[in-house]
Simulated scan of single mutants.
Amino acid sequence: MLYWAIVCLVIAIIAGVLGFGGIAGTAAGFAKILFFIFLVLLVVSLLFNMLRGKGPKV
């Protein structure tokens, strides 16, 4: 999911440089939404691992 957020961010940057403001805004908004979803899933995953008492495998 983080991959798609980065892809949308790159598309937004390229579209902004080329002058496509609407496409750039939409892609940037989509990238922002995906990034925050990724962060929420990361926090939930960390909390579940802490509650289960399992540490990372080394």
Rank of each mutant, 00 (worst) to 15 (best):
Leu47Phe: 09
Leu41Phe: 02
Ile37Leu: 13
Phe30Cys: 14
Phe35Asp: 01
Asn49His: 12
Leu51Lys: 10
Gly53Leu: 00
Gly25Phe: 13
Leu46Lys: 07
Phe30Met: 15
Gly22Arg: 09
Val44Ser: 08
Asn49Val: 05
Ala27Ser: 15
Gly22Thr: 13
Phe36Arg: 03
Phe36Pro: 02
Leu51Gly: 00
Ala28Leu: 15
Ile37Pro: 01
Ala12Gly: 14
Ala28Met: 14
Gly53Val: 00
Leu39Glu: 02
Arg52Trp: 03
Arg52Tyr: 00
Lys32Leu: 15
Val40Thr: 06
Leu47Gln: 08
Ile14Cys: 09
Leu41Val: 07
Leu47Thr: 11
Gly19Arg: 03
Thr26Ser: 07
Ala15Thr: 03
Gly29Trp: 05
Val40Lys: 04
Thr26Glu: 05
Ala12Asn: 02
Ala27Asp: 04
Gly29His: 05
Phe48Ala: 14
Leu42Gly: 02
Asn49Ile: 05
Leu46Val: 11
Gly16Gln: 03
Val40Glu: 04
Thr26Met: 15
Leu51Ile: 14
Ile14Gly: 01
Val17Thr: 11
Ile14Asn: 06
Ile14His: 02
Leu51Asp: 04
Gly53Asp: 02
Leu18Pro: 01
Gly21Cys: 09
Ala24Cys: 10
Ile23Val: 15
Leu51Ala: 13
Phe36Trp: 15
Val40Asp: 00
Gly22Ala: 14
Leu46Cys: 02
Leu42Ala: 12
Gly29Gln: 04
Phe48Pro: 01
Met50Val: 11
Ile33Leu: 12
Leu42Tyr: 04
Gly16Asp: 12
